[in-house]
Simulated assay, not measured.
Amino acid sequence: MNENTLFNSNITKEEFLKTFWNKRPYLFKNAFQNTEDLASAEDLLDLALDESCETRMVYKDQNSKRRLVHGPFSEEELHEYLKKSFALIGHNLNTLSPEFYEFQKAVDFIPGWEFDDVMSVYSNDDMSLGAHIDNYNVFIFQGLGKRRWEIQESPNTEWREDEELKVLKEFDPDYEWILNPGDMIYVPPGVAHHGTSLSESISYSIGFKSLETSDVLGSFFTELDDVGFFSNNSFNSKTSSDVPEEAFKFFREQAQNFINDEKVFNKWLLKKLSAPKYPIEPSGDPIPESFEGMSIEKDVQLKYAFAPTGEIAVNRKLYKLTDKQRNLLLQILDANPFGPITISAEQESELKDVLKALWCEGAIFESAL
């Protein structure tokens, strides 16, 4: 194996992206080490009690039907759920500790603007979420215990009506894999998968959003409409409900013009791809007179995307930078969010206005470390 192979396997990044990404599942044996030490069951149960954490509980009722409830939970509620067959799901673990953030960085050969979150599933023996399909790319690795994964590459997408979760009505797996601690599978969008715990189990997933054309174009035209791109032209109609051909032609041409305008579309796409999962709140702290020598941190969910033209979008705001400025900014943006970053004199000189803007948005702030 060479340094370009993935997760202790014999496959290179290039081979994986060409042959499997968005196409076929793949099994990585012994992808990670010491995954049992990432989090204990108690750690994940604590998340379910925390109002600032996003959690869900799936449990089986007296008729063995899966039911879904959202956290946070009281200790009494949690105690009752743990008496049943259950699966506790935790979201956004990458924002909670540097250990989980490292798993986000482990897959940084995938564009960061596609990244969604690191998620956990803690379940007792013989529990599953049912055979289902995700509309995103996901790496799933085993932290504690064992889990059996059954895979069907071309499923029939009819859903059971007696389940609160979207569970497939028919599931005929093509193959199955048993995951031990450290093992990992990759599952592309549209591939059915069914995971069943074979003991007390903690598994983790690293999810990447799939950008659907309908979503991209829909939000693009919504934004254009909000800023008044479409004309309020009057059209001659036979009746109040009649839409004449000239109206269809006009709006069709408008839509084509905006999509074909590379500057308009590219700027919008950069802004969309740099949007964080949840809004970043400004701190309201006064802007420092100088950033030089200051120890700062960046918001853990800060996202950014840049184009070959030199434009970069950070937290949905566009900046036109030179190559030198962009490289200096990336030294800040690429840094670990769980540690301080010291601003150099060169960064202060070249990026003063950008740093001020990021500070006002809450994207960067003074470190307490």
Results as ranks from 00 to 15, higher is better:
residue 98 P to D: 05
residue 76 E to T: 14
residue 127 M to Y: 12
residue 109 F to A: 07
residue 103 F to D: 01
residue 96 L to D: 10
residue 104 Q to S: 08
residue 96 L to P: 00
residue 136 Y to K: 11
residue 98 P to N: 05
residue 153 E to P: 09
residue 72 P to L: 06
residue 150 E to G: 09
residue 76 E to S: 13
residue 75 E to Q: 15
residue 70 H to D: 15
residue 86 F to T: 02
residue 74 S to V: 07
residue 68 L to P: 10
residue 101 Y to A: 04
residue 113 W to H: 09
residue 95 T to Q: 15
residue 82 L to Y: 11
residue 90 G to H: 02
residue 74 S to C: 07
residue 151 I to E: 11
residue 125 D to P: 12
residue 75 E to A: 13
residue 92 N to K: 13
residue 137 N to D: 01
residue 108 D to W: 01
residue 111 P to K: 11
residue 157 T to W: 07
residue 87 A to M: 14
residue 102 E to L: 15
residue 96 L to T: 09
residue 93 L to F: 08
residue 129 L to E: 09
residue 148 R to V: 15
residue 139 F to E: 00
residue 94 N to D: 02
residue 154 S to F: 14
residue 86 F to C: 04
residue 147 R to P: 07
residue 112 G to S: 11
residue 97 S to L: 12
residue 76 E to C: 08
residue 125 D to F: 06
residue 92 N to P: 11
residue 148 R to Y: 14
residue 109 F to I: 03
residue 68 L to G: 05
residue 98 P to Q: 05
residue 146 K to T: 12
residue 160 R to M: 14
residue 95 T to V: 14
residue 79 H to A: 15
residue 111 P to M: 09
residue 144 L to P: 04
residue 138 V to F: 03
residue 142 Q to M: 05
residue 108 D to E: 11
residue 116 D to H: 12
residue 135 N to K: 06
residue 85 S to V: 15
residue 118 V to S: 02
residue 117 D to F: 09
residue 103 F to Q: 03
residue 77 E to W: 00
residue 122 Y to I: 00
residue 126 D to A: 08
residue 106 A to N: 13
residue 104 Q to P: 09
residue 135 N to C: 14
